[in-house]
Design a protein around this nucleic acid. Structure first.
Lengths: 245, 245
DNA sequence: CGCACCTTGCGAACGCCGTACGCTACGATG
DNA sequence: CATCGTAGCGTACGGCGTTCGCAAGGTGCG
């Protein structure tokens, strides 16, 4: 919050010299934007609110960022840098890919708002972090023994799965967060609605019923792991019978 | 476009009786919204523009739809109804699942704007079309021989993959569409930028190089099929040695 | 037939958004 | 000391989602 404005500012009480250093910078803007997004979600990010957080006017940001879309591209690439991809090692490619998948999932769940901008920004853009991580992940598949073009397809397969799965997860968690309730209570309060909706769909209802007994968070993690395992099984069978689990 | 307004409307020239039938309805609104979205993309959808298309004022829509978010939920469920899921048949579960995956992909590519609202709306909502299709797809996996809970995970795996893959595809195509150029020309014009960006990433560059020679659309379809095949391989190995390809 | 009520549609208005533009004031450069 | 480039900002514009109160037609009831 900046100093309060006096309606008739005296010439003596100068607003502030404060020309220490640029005060605003692309990095500060991006990092503050991420904090704001994590704390309050995608709808809370406006150029004005972000400017206020930085103790600056809304339009000052345009000195460092072309427009809001560009800001979002920067922000997405920045958080992509949080993903950890192990170094390539032919002996443990499966573990390395699994770790990467988990790391990508955690990143998205830490920043659930990204799933609501993926449609605008695409996954395949040219940010340095995104390219670096893709290169490292591609190396994992090459080390496993996939030829250049198949390694590319394998990586796309894995990333698509993780993004698809976490999109649904993050969207669910966002809705939950907006409800302001504990997950248990929230599900309980929706129970009548869902049960009525499931009335005509016995198969779906069965699944929901058996799921009722377990911790939902653990259930989501298990589902995620199941998918990763199946994908790796499918990929592994394309390789020679060389690598062990 | 409605009739032009006269500044001083005469009592004789009444604006219109036109009280034939309600004129506006939830269905008309949803279907016109989809046409608008398909034609001009997500940014072109505003309550005002949609109202105008329907020959109505913006605020009239609120008699039939609670707010824009609800409209989007309706629209998403509506297009979900376009997906075709074959009837369950143990002998051909693999083909049936493959068909469903392709149908879902085509639907998203026909309506590429959906990927930019998936983050808000989630995939797991309670729309009737979504529930109906999920039930049918679940039946496919049950017929294949998966137990209730594993069938659920298998379905989630497949859908997550298709959504993830098509998200990236649709986002790419949206950017391309906004450029207003032919895909060939567009890629050509971006060539210098991408080549410079790929400079430090030899593995990524290799992939891009071999991809250069083929039809990009075919390439995307092939990649998609590759992923579906690997997933089905991974799933199939979980079943007994019963089902043939 | 008269009258009350309900539903549909709409115009005006509010507060917020992204952002273009031109001004100020400062530090650096000659 | 004069000049210039640049960071920051105040103002303003057009568009957004949405609220509210009013008008006009249809319906049901005495």
């Amino acid at each position: 919050m900046p100093a309060e404005k006096q309606p008739i500012p005296s010439v003596w009480a100068r607003p502030r010299p404060k020309r220490e250093q640029p005060s605003l910078s692309r990095d500060r803007i991006v990092s503050e934007a991420i904090q704001l997004l994590d704390a309050e979600g995608i709808d809370a990010l406006s150029m004005r609110s972000l400017g206020a957080r930085l103790g600056a006017g809304a339009t000052s940001l345009y000195r460092h960022v072309a427009n809001k879309d560009e800001l979002i591209e920067l922000v997405v690439d920045e958080i992509y840098g949080e993903v950890r991809v192990p170094a390539a090692d032919p002996a443990h490619w499966r573990a390395a890919v699994t770790d990467s998948a988990h790391s990508l999932r955690s990143m998205v769940l830490r920043h659930p708002w990204v799933v609501s901008v993926l449609g605008q920004v695409g996954l395949a853009y040219l940010g340095p972090n995104l390219m670096r991580q893709s290169e490292r992940m591609l190396a994992l598949f090459r080390a496993a023994g996939f030829a250049a073009d198949e390694a590319d397809q394998a990586m796309k397969l894995l990333i698509a799965y993780v993004i698809g799965m976490t999109t649904s997860e993050a969207a669910y968690l966002s809705v939950l967060a907006r409800s302001g309730q504990n997950e248990q209570d929230w599900l309980e309060s929706l129970r009548p609605t869902t049960e009525e909706a499931l009335q005509e769909y016995p198969l779906l209802r069965d699944g929901r019923a058996t799921a009722q007994t377990k911790d939902p968070e653990q259930l989501r993690a298990d589902s995620f792991v199941y998918g990763v395992e199946r994908i790796l099984d499918g990929l592994e069978s394309r390789l020679g019978r060389t690598s062990a689990r």
